[in-house]
Amino acid sequence: MAPLDPAVAAGRNLVRRALADLGPGSRVVVAVSGGADSLALARVTAFVAGQESWDLRAVIVDHQLQDGSADVVERTAKQLAAIGIDAEAVTVDVGTDGGPEAAARSARYAVLGAQQADAVLLAHTLDDQAETVLLGLGRGSGPRSIAGMAEVNGVFRRPFLQLRRSDTEQICRATGLTWWTDPHNADPAYRRVRVRTEVMPVLEDVLGGGVAEALARTADQVRADGAHLDAIADAVEQPLDIATLAALPDVIRSRVLRRTALDAGVNPSELAAVHLAEIDRLVTDWHGQLRIELPGGVACVRVGDSLAYVTTPVGG
């Protein structure tokens, strides 16, 4: 018997660890695009699911962004069937809000989030995490962006955040899977592609290697700190009371304000630091400001000794 490929063994162990809380019969969905990362995740998950008696299936989302996308879906479904995974193909119409990448992501997550599953597995790797941290640094988006992607976020789980992209390709080679390469992943029109193909190689060269791992470790550390501060913010009583808010440290008050804005219906992907800074001025630098306009048709106002969120009046 041939020895087990180290990359395959590592992938299986990561899936076991990420889903250790699931018992027999748990419903697990793996999101598969046809690329190396998601095919590798499907392959190792199929093995672990057989041992753990999970109810495993796959979802392939066809964004219809390239000619022949239906053929990619068909080839992917056949490979999944060959390893014992039933796949559902879902075709979506990608909008334009936020640009093509954001629109495709929104459409994909809408499909995946609607699955009746105990866990939905996403195939983001350590390389994806490092790129996300760099992009967050470049935007100046603050610690929430630098924290990158969490291994567990509600129903979504990312078992491969400690695995390199090259390892997923090796899993495919070792198990006889043939992956599809998305042409968008080589298109320099996308900022993430330039980070991947231009910025990361330079950093690895200048800093002597290990940059991707270091960025991923940084994300883990920032995320842990952020989770602790979020817990403190969540425990604040009367989160709209001016006196209460004014007495909080800045780092806690910003989190409380963010939570109240989200509770009021503001889209988290559109809520920026500049919005929170203006809401903060209603507490710390009040000069009679009328209202702070927020994404999603919501405004924040100061009413006496309290903040309030109201619907933005039509026509201003």
Rank of each mutant, 00 (worst) to 15 (best):
R108E: 11
A216G: 02
L39K: 05
A216T: 10
G23N: 08
P188G: 09
E169A: 07
I292V: 15
R43D: 05
L137D: 00
A42I: 00
G316C: 09
H275K: 13
Q116G: 06
E198P: 05
A10P: 00
S269F: 12
P100D: 12
Q64P: 01
V120K: 01
A102D: 03
D225N: 06
Q51Y: 04
D97Y: 12
G297S: 11
R12N: 01
H228N: 01
E169Y: 06
R12H: 03
G34V: 00
L112C: 05
L126F: 11
V251G: 00
G35K: 02
G148Y: 11
Q64G: 13
D234F: 14
D86T: 14
Q238P: 00
R281K: 14
I242E: 07
Q116Y: 02
P24D: 08
P159L: 12
G297C: 11
T244D: 03
P239H: 14
E270M: 15
E204M: 07
G140N: 07
H184T: 01
H275W: 13
A114P: 04
S69T: 07
V28P: 03
A247D: 14
A150D: 13
I252K: 06
A58S: 10
L207Y: 10
A7C: 15
E101Q: 13
A89W: 00
V310W: 10
T132Y: 04
A40N: 02
A10M: 08
V73N: 01
Q79V: 06
M149H: 12
S254K: 10
Q289F: 03
S306H: 12
R75I: 01
V199D: 00
G296M: 08
L4Q: 09
V206I: 13
V298L: 09
A31R: 00
R157F: 08
W286G: 05
P100L: 13
T284F: 07
